[in-house]
Amino acid sequence: MAERPYIVGNWKMNGTRSMLSEARAIDRASQRLMKVEVALAPPFTLLHAVHKEVQQIGVGAQDCHPGEDGAFTGDVSASMVLDAGAKFVILGHSERRQAHGEDDALVKAKATAALNAGLRIILCCGESEEIRDAGEAEQFVIDQLKASMPKISGNVGEVLTVAYEPIWAIGTGRTPTADDIGSMHRAIRALLVELYGEETSAAVRILYGGSVNPGNATELLGADEVGGALVGGASLTAESFLGIVLAAADLPD
């Protein structure tokens, strides 16, 4: 596993200012769990507020527009989320790809804009149940990741995290086996080595995302090449999210 485990909470379209207490509780606990890097991605409306409330954990956005500015009603640019306090942005999440029709080219453009603005990126990839059942999951994910990857120079580990999220496991309560996750993460690692070289790519963490909760976190985080987790529903309360963080902290060095 490269560097510290990275546990990222994606609040999705959840949260008002009343949830700042959950962010504060997560932050306080994270100050005692330095073996784990912890971050939250609240909705745009809470970015600045969460940024002001926390000291230890990272704060990021769930999306950004590929343009710098202009007549794009309702959109938010990478420089805007940076200005609000974000240090990273989640891009290519399956919910954006499916519900908003985002293709690989758009995800790549957004990732390029985020890097140019000075943000780190969490680049998501994953397959549907149909593709998994057809035995084409690994090739699909590798092709998707290749087509979505921006040009990165320098220390890739400082700016890039990859998140594998099988679409059929997101919010469904279903999870792949640890062997399935390890196999996919090894394939992603091989691609990163191909693109950036073995030494440089070793610092890129590959997260698993898909119905991660305190009950299954130890098994999932222990799978081969899993460098952390992208957590959805279980990140909405400090109690459940910190159960996952504690599982990461207890992993063998």
Score class of each variant (00 low, 15 high):
95 E>F: 15
56 Q>N: 09
9 G>P: 02
85 G>D: 00
221 L>W: 08
143 D>I: 02
30 S>G: 10
219 E>H: 05
187 A>S: 14
74 G>L: 07
33 L>I: 14
102 E>T: 03
124 C>T: 10
223 A>K: 01
22 E>A: 06
92 G>D: 02
165 E>Q: 09
36 V>H: 08
215 G>D: 13
77 S>A: 01
17 R>E: 03
182 G>V: 04
5 P>R: 06
47 L>S: 02
245 V>E: 06
242 L>H: 06
160 L>Q: 00
223 A>E: 05
73 T>M: 00
114 A>K: 02
124 C>N: 09
53 E>M: 06
127 E>G: 01
78 A>Y: 03
32 R>Y: 05
214 P>F: 11
170 I>L: 03
82 L>V: 04
228 G>T: 01
203 A>Q: 15
250 D>Q: 11
186 R>P: 04
51 H>N: 12
140 F>R: 10
5 P>A: 04
146 K>S: 10
210 G>Q: 03
247 A>P: 09
252 P>L: 12
107 V>Y: 05
199 E>I: 14
97 R>L: 01
31 Q>M: 14
153 S>R: 13
133 D>C: 12
123 L>I: 08
164 Y>M: 10
224 D>G: 08
158 E>V: 07
234 A>C: 13
94 S>I: 09
34 M>H: 15
253 D>S: 14
87 K>E: 15
30 S>D: 10
194 E>G: 01
20 L>P: 01
157 G>D: 06
1 M>A: 14
237 T>R: 07
3 E>D: 14
253 D>I: 02
235 S>T: 15
234 A>H: 11
146 K>C: 03
